Simulated scan of single mutants.
Amino acid sequence: MIPTNGACGIGFAIAKGLAASGAIVVLNGRSPAAVDKAIAALKNAVPDATLRGVAADLGTAEACAALAKAEPHADILVNNIGIYGPQDFFETPDEEWTRFFDVNVMSGVRLSRSYLPGMMRKNWGRVVFLSSESALNIPSDMIHYGFTKTAALSISRGLAKRVAGTGVTVNAVLPGPTLSEGVEAMLKDTANKSGQSMAAAGTAFVREHRPSSIIGRMATPEEVANMVVYVCSMQASATTGAALRVDGGVVDTIA
């Protein structure tokens, strides 16, 4: 299986969960150093894991092609590479919209185009797009991010229909606020100034910015990974074209 950007955060947790389930894992990261570090950490966590690594910044067509050349076959593809960050709509230039689109959307399009035909020939495969609760609950300070996550939902649903009857499933997983390494970096100053633990700072953020959350805290990367591991499993054979929320109840709907 290949988790894009599996070197840290939610991607690493997904890689660890799938490795513990017996999958051969190909870790991707933006630099050789990041990949080597992740492989060492994952080998420590799952000593019996079979691991390989490919360094490629998947925000470009050339890097996606390089990954597909290095690892031509995969039974599981997890499109979880993504960038985010608040920026006012009126101050977000065209090139930033393009950068977010290339990384968050086109990486998944390109890699799915590369790997899905092989899955279809084998009559088995799993493709998962990491979307976000922000795909449904568009943040006003990250419209350029929210639209990419809505696009991931559209692509995953459409691809599920495109591969219908092949034994391949395509789904989207929608995390809510998650205490990943990137979010920890964002909260570091707040935690230091307030004397709070990182978890407490995350809870304060959720209560202020996502008050509809039912769990009232941030999820852990492992909690998100658990859903991905399930949807990649044999047991999820009748789950396809779905938007599976791991948002702590942030999106206030019963559907």
Rank of each mutant, 00 (worst) to 15 (best):
I143P: 01
A41P: 00
L159A: 07
D36G: 07
A70L: 09
R52D: 13
N44P: 00
P86A: 10
A63W: 15
S132F: 05
R52Y: 09
A55I: 08
V127E: 02
G118N: 09
F101Q: 14
P72R: 07
S107P: 08
A34S: 13
F90A: 02
N137V: 07
A152K: 05
F101P: 09
L174N: 10
T178E: 02
T60Q: 04
E71Y: 11
A66I: 14
L153Y: 13
A74M: 14
I138Y: 03
P177H: 06
T98L: 10
T50I: 02
Y84G: 12
L67S: 11
K69P: 11
L159I: 09
A172E: 04
A33N: 05
V163M: 00
V173D: 00
V173A: 00
S132P: 08
D48H: 01
P47R: 00
T92Y: 09
I81R: 01
S131T: 13
F100I: 08
G108M: 08
P47I: 03
D94F: 15
A33R: 04
V170R: 03
F147Y: 13
A38T: 06
A45K: 00
D94N: 10
A68K: 08
F147H: 12
E96V: 15
P139D: 14
A33Y: 05
G59A: 10
A45I: 12
K43D: 01
F147V: 15
V35F: 13
L116E: 06
I155M: 07
I81M: 01
A55Q: 07
A160L: 01
S154Q: 02
V127Y: 09
E133G: 09
N137H: 08
I83K: 00
L130V: 15
C64Y: 13
T60Y: 07
D102K: 07
V35G: 02
S154F: 03
A38H: 12
A34W: 06
E95M: 02
R121F: 00
A55T: 11
L159D: 00
D141P: 10
